[in-house]
């Protein structure tokens, strides 16, 4: 059983101090929202998914065994909610570009490359995109990623490796095509 600040808060929430759940939301909202945003690629939908995930977490808090970190459990909920949403509603390519405008307004020199990277990521399979997103978001260990993806750690490691290779190959193809059109 994990005994950290989250665990203490969870025990108090389950004992009746439900208002303390706001502290858990405040602590994990950025990461939960960012993970949803990376998968859904639409700010409004990502916020809705992050909110729904917190509500689900609250609803099933009593069934959370506390053998893993609360954050890992929450991210699994966010991940599953976002993937389910994405399967139901197809997100358009334009939304990715809109998203880019939001966080890449810096140097114009690399703008093209960034656009190609976004294109390459979008060409990856849903699973590869998810694996690579979790990997690069860096806060998670391989074991935590394995728990979120519900796969053994070794499988996740191989999947990350393959997804990175695929991304590199797609990017290479895109850059080659662009070079030919110049």
């Amino acid at each position: 059983m994990v005994t950290d600040a989250d665990s203490i808060l969870i025990n108090r929430i389950l004992a009746g101090e439900q208002h303390l759940f706001a502290q858990l939301v405040n602590k994990h909202k950025s990461y939960a929202y960012s993970l949803a945003l990376r998968i859904i690629e639409n700010k409004a939908d990502a916020e809705e998914i992050a909110q729904d995930s917190f509500i689900k977490a609250f609803k099933y808090l009593a069934s959370f065994q506390q053998e893993s970190k609360f954050s890992t459990w929450l991210y699994r909920i966010v991940f599953n909610t976002a993937i389910t949403y994405k399967r139901k509603n197809k997100v358009s390519w334009q939304s990715i570009e809109q998203l880019q405008k939001g966080y890449w307004q810096d140097d114009a020199e690399q703008a093209d490359k960034k656009k190609f990277i976004a294109q390459a990521i979008h060409q990856l399979s849903e699973q590869d995109q998810a694996v690579i997103t979790l990997y690069y978001m860096q806060e998670l260990s391989l074991e935590e990623m394995a728990e979120i993806l519900q796969s053994p750690a070794n499988t996740v490691k191989v999947r990350v490796h393959r997804a990175r290779l695929k991304l590199a190959e797609i990017l290479k193809t895109i850059l080659k095509k662009e070079a030919l059109t110049l």
Partner: peptide, 8 residues
């Protein structure tokens, strides 16, 4: 691409 979005 991924780490910047993390700050959202």
């Amino acid at each position: 691409h991924f780490t910047r979005i993390k700050l959202s």
